[in-house]
Protein backbone atom coordinates (compact mmCIF):
# COMPACT_ATOMS: atom_id res chain seq x y z
CA UNK A 1 0.00 0.00 0.00
CA UNK A 2 1.38 3.35 -1.01
CA UNK A 3 2.05 6.10 1.46
CA UNK A 4 1.01 9.42 0.02
CA UNK A 5 1.91 12.81 1.37
CA UNK A 6 -1.16 15.01 1.24
CA UNK A 7 0.01 18.55 0.55
CA UNK A 8 -2.91 19.94 2.55
CA UNK A 9 -2.65 17.68 5.60
CA UNK A 10 1.14 17.84 5.37
CA UNK A 11 1.22 14.21 6.42
CA UNK A 12 1.98 10.91 4.80
CA UNK A 13 -1.18 8.88 4.86
CA UNK A 14 -2.12 5.39 3.73
CA UNK A 15 -3.34 4.84 0.18
CA UNK A 16 -6.72 3.54 1.42
CA UNK A 17 -7.65 7.12 2.34
CA UNK A 18 -7.20 8.26 -1.26
CA UNK A 19 -8.67 7.65 -4.63
CA UNK A 20 -6.85 8.09 -7.89
CA UNK A 21 -8.20 10.81 -10.16
CA UNK A 22 -6.39 10.51 -13.48
CA UNK A 23 -3.75 12.59 -15.19
CA UNK A 24 -3.00 16.06 -13.87
CA UNK A 25 -2.68 19.40 -15.65
CA UNK A 26 -5.47 18.75 -18.11
CA UNK A 27 -7.30 21.98 -17.81
CA UNK A 28 -10.90 22.24 -18.90
CA UNK A 29 -11.09 24.65 -21.85
CA UNK A 30 -12.66 27.94 -20.80
CA UNK A 31 -14.84 27.97 -23.91
CA UNK A 32 -15.50 24.38 -24.98
CA UNK A 33 -17.79 25.56 -27.78
CA UNK A 34 -14.80 27.14 -29.51
CA UNK A 35 -13.01 23.81 -29.80
CA UNK A 36 -13.02 21.65 -32.91
CA UNK A 37 -14.18 18.06 -32.59
CA UNK A 38 -10.57 16.91 -32.71
CA UNK A 39 -9.51 19.34 -30.00
CA UNK A 40 -12.41 18.33 -27.80
CA UNK A 41 -11.59 14.67 -28.38
CA UNK A 42 -8.02 15.30 -27.28
CA UNK A 43 -9.20 17.03 -24.11
CA UNK A 44 -11.71 14.31 -23.29
CA UNK A 45 -9.91 11.13 -24.14
CA UNK A 46 -6.21 11.44 -24.93
CA UNK A 47 -3.79 10.86 -22.06
CA UNK A 48 -0.03 10.50 -21.95
CA UNK A 49 0.35 7.19 -20.09
CA UNK A 50 4.12 7.50 -19.75
CA UNK A 51 6.67 5.01 -18.53
CA UNK A 52 8.44 6.98 -15.87
CA UNK A 53 7.53 10.44 -14.60
CA UNK A 54 3.78 10.88 -14.45
CA UNK A 55 1.79 13.90 -13.34
CA UNK A 56 -1.38 12.68 -11.76
CA UNK A 57 -4.22 13.63 -9.46
CA UNK A 58 -5.24 12.09 -6.19
CA UNK A 59 -8.31 12.79 -4.08
CA UNK A 60 -7.90 12.61 -0.33
CA UNK A 61 -11.47 11.47 -0.17
CA UNK A 62 -11.31 9.87 3.28
CA UNK A 63 -9.11 12.60 4.68
CA UNK A 64 -9.21 16.34 4.09
CA UNK A 65 -11.38 15.96 0.99
CA UNK A 66 -8.94 17.76 -1.33
CA UNK A 67 -7.86 16.97 -4.85
CA UNK A 68 -4.14 17.47 -5.35
CA UNK A 69 -1.39 16.68 -7.79
CA UNK A 70 1.50 14.27 -7.57
CA UNK A 71 4.57 13.36 -9.55
CA UNK A 72 5.01 9.62 -9.47
CA UNK A 73 7.40 7.38 -11.30
CA UNK A 74 5.26 4.70 -12.92
CA UNK A 75 8.18 2.26 -12.98
CA UNK A 76 9.20 2.42 -9.34
CA UNK A 77 5.91 3.73 -7.94
CA UNK A 78 7.93 6.28 -6.01
CA UNK A 79 6.33 9.65 -5.40
CA UNK A 80 8.71 12.43 -6.28
CA UNK A 81 6.47 15.07 -4.76
CA UNK A 82 2.89 16.15 -4.25
CA UNK A 83 1.50 19.67 -4.51
CA UNK A 84 -1.83 21.47 -4.32
CA UNK A 85 -4.14 21.59 -7.30
CA UNK A 86 -3.69 24.77 -9.27
CA UNK A 87 0.07 24.97 -8.84
CA UNK A 88 2.06 24.85 -12.07
CA UNK A 89 3.53 21.62 -13.35
CA UNK A 90 6.97 21.12 -11.76
CA UNK A 91 9.83 21.46 -14.21
CA UNK A 92 12.32 18.72 -14.98
CA UNK A 93 14.72 20.67 -12.82
CA UNK A 94 12.29 20.73 -9.87
CA UNK A 95 11.77 17.01 -10.20
CA UNK A 96 15.47 16.22 -10.28
CA UNK A 97 15.91 18.41 -7.22
CA UNK A 98 13.15 16.60 -5.38
CA UNK A 99 14.68 13.24 -6.24
CA UNK A 100 18.04 14.09 -4.71
Amino acid sequence: MLLIKCPYCQQERAEVEFSYAGEAHIERPSDPAALSDAEWEAYLFLRSNPRGTHFERWYHIHGCGRYFNAVRDTVTDNFVRTYPAGMPRPSVHDIDDAKT
Binding site: S19, R28, R57, Y59, I61, R66, Y67, A85, G86
Partner: peptide, 13 residues
Protein backbone atom coordinates in the same frame (compact mmCIF):
# COMPACT_ATOMS: atom_id res chain seq x y z
CA UNK B 1 -20.13 14.41 -4.57
CA UNK B 2 -16.65 13.57 -5.89
CA UNK B 3 -17.60 14.85 -9.35
CA UNK B 4 -18.87 18.15 -7.95
CA UNK B 5 -15.87 18.60 -5.64
CA UNK B 6 -13.54 17.90 -8.53
CA UNK B 7 -14.94 20.73 -10.67
CA UNK B 8 -15.33 23.05 -7.74
CA UNK B 9 -11.81 22.58 -6.43
CA UNK B 10 -9.83 22.24 -9.61
CA UNK B 11 -11.69 24.09 -12.38
CA UNK B 12 -13.73 26.77 -10.68
CA UNK B 13 -11.88 27.46 -7.46
Amino acid sequence: MAHMEDYLQTEWA
